[in-house]
Design a binder for these strands. Structure first.
Lengths: 144, 144
DNA sequence: ATAATATACTACTAATGCAGTAGGAAATCA
DNA sequence: TGATTTCCTACTGCATTAGTAGTATATTAT
């Protein structure tokens, strides 16, 4: 069970924007460069994030991207969901009419629990939390 | 993030065997029929489960498959891992030298937490737990 | 022995989704 | 007007997954 690079890239890009929050627009090529992501590919991911309302953009020279809300108001789980789609561990969890077998219902319970655990972790974290963690990590570096 | 049918099928097959534990070998075609899975495809999954030591087989007429251990001694997470491989939410969680960016380290922490949450759920459940749940569900049915 | 039954093993194939590429249109600033 | 940057759409190569096919091997029943 792998996470798509789509989601990993997207979240890393959003993290860049969170760190840049309040400092004006950040250009796509800068983000792509820092994160070592194909500019053209990231461009498509940004479109998804934009239409979902997490980020906004300014076109033209001196343009770029920025968060649409404060980092504290953006939950990681929401960004994740936007990029990765529902964590459909199994179709039957979302779609009631998918199966009829008793045995499956037990399996289904498990997938529902796993799904809940995943989203539980992700929804407890805001972008601000991650920015704070990154700062903390950096300050630790200086003491080593 | 979807689960492969491989894992879903495999776990459902193992659940059939768990319910049949102590009653002799259960034939592949019976399992496939009950669970609505391609016989030939399930055959391959059974080979994986067998070489991992979760099930054993008896060849020839009146043969079939059975659990190699008591249902109580088999953790769901282990079966899951056997079929699905490591829950590589991101490569960097497994492979230390995968990235160097500070930003990624924050992302990495998240993926590690998610991974831990998933395996935490799965490892807390044994096949026996699931058999018990299934029985309970059935008895509930009779009261409705 | 022989036929019937069931697993074991290996190779192939179609379909799908993912990651990345390409090129031009539209907006903004100097 | 030119440079810059986002916006939009379509295409492509690759890897993985799900499923199929056929044959070999082992065991039981007659």
């Amino acid at each position: 069970m792998k996470l798509s690079t789509r989601t990993r890239y997207g979240i890393r890009a959003v993290l860049e924007l969170a760190e840049n929050y309040g400092k004006g627009p950040l250009q796509l090529k800068i983000i792509a460069q820092r994160q070592d992501i194909s500019v053209k590919y990231l461009e498509q991911l940004m479109a998804v994030l934009r239409s979902a309302g997490f980020i906004k953009s300014i076109r033209g020279s001196k343009g770029g991207y920025m968060l649409a809300k404060a980092p504290m108001q953006i939950k990681l789980g929401d960004v994740f969901y936007c990029l990765e789609g529902p964590v459909i561990i199994s179709e039957c969890v979302e779609n009631e009419s998918y199966c009829t077998r008793t045995n499956d219902c037990v399996a289904r319970q498990i997938w529902a629990e796993v799904q809940k655990a995943i989203m539980g972790v992700l929804q407890s974290i805001t972008l601000q939390n991650l920015v704070d963690r990154a700062k903390h990590n950096k300050s630790l570096d200086y003491h080593i």
